[in-house]
């Protein structure tokens, strides 16, 4: 490992290590890209791809993100954007859970869907996309529906769970799983021009207060549908919450809920 670290130190410009040298080291020393990324970050260096993160996230913060595992539950409108942003941010391990395959009605908003890949398993598309945009990131894909029964096993090891579900009943089960695992849950939901985001800590009643206990309830998205921009916005807000939780920075939406109305361009905060 010292030889690899020495290679990186020799090739770094200031503390930045170019992708070309990271790839060269992986091939020369027989390491995965993820292994080289760990060595770079552990030696106080920064892969050059993150240089524009820098005024926002320190080198130590970037290392912390790489050492983190985050679970994204749902890989549709919200989930694809969330996975994309977590991977570009540099979160090292992303667990993605979704039972579905892409269909034509997903094409208006779901980032990993393509008319040339109809029928593709959504979580497989997530693996393919992340391998393409940031090969240092590991995606653990589960083509499965989350439930109270399998949730603890699927989410085990994740520091934060991100809600990208389209089912109120499954959301309530996810909240229970997060309480059992004692991890925070970043909640997002969308319908038409409208969205909401909040962060729930284990045991808090945030989701049950919002949704009641009717597990079969459907939101207004069943009549309003979802356009392209609402999931992109709400997903980004959720990723910002995740980033703060992982880095222990800023002020989260714990105890507050952001209500978004893009038709009136009105953002309001509820104190929960």
């Amino acid at each position: 490992m010292n030889a690899v670290a020495a290679f990186f130190k020799n090739h770094a410009v200031a503390d930045l290590l170019a992708w070309q040298h990271q790839l060269e080291a992986a091939e020369h020393f027989g390491l995965s890209i993820a292994e080289t990324e760990a060595i770079i970050l552990d030696n106080g260096l920064l892969p050059a791809r993150y240089q524009r993160n820098r005024q926002t996230i320190s080198q130590a913060g970037q290392r912390e993100l790489f050492r983190s595992q985050v679970a994204v539950i749902g890989c549709g409108g919200l989930g694809c954007y969330i996975v994309e942003e977590l991977a570009r941010l540099g979160v090292g391990r992303i667990v993605v859970i979704d039972p579905d395959t892409f269909e034509e009605h997903n094409l208006n908003r779901q980032l990993f869907s393509s008319p040339w890949q109809m029928g593709e398993i959504k979580v497989s598309a997530a693996v393919r996309r992340v391998a393409d945009i940031n090969p240092a990131v590991t995606v653990v894909a589960h083509q499965d529906a989350l439930s109270r029964e399998n949730g603890v096993e699927l989410l085990s090891g994740s520091r934060v769970a991100v809600d990208a579900l389209d089912s109120i009943g499954v959301r309530l089960q996810l909240a229970d799983v997060c309480t059992l695992l004692e991890i925070p849950l970043v909640h997002g939901a969308i319908a038409g021009w409208f969205g909401q985001v909040t962060t729930r800590f284990p045991g808090e009643e945030t989701l049950s207060n919002m949704y009641g206990s009717d597990k079969s309830a459907k939101g207004v998205e069943s009549s309003l549908g979802n356009p392209s921009f609402t999931p992109a916005l709400v997903a980004s807000l959720e990723v910002a919450e995740v980033c703060k939780l992982l880095l222990g920075q800023g002020r989260s939406l714990r105890g507050r809920q952001l209500m978004i109305d893009l038709l009136s361009m009105d953002f309001c905060e509820l104190v929960l």
Binding site: S167, I190, F194, G219
Partner: peptide, 8 residues
């Protein structure tokens, strides 16, 4: 009064 939002 807020509508129920459940989509993802």
């Amino acid at each position: 009064l807020f509508p129920l939002l459940g989509g993802g």
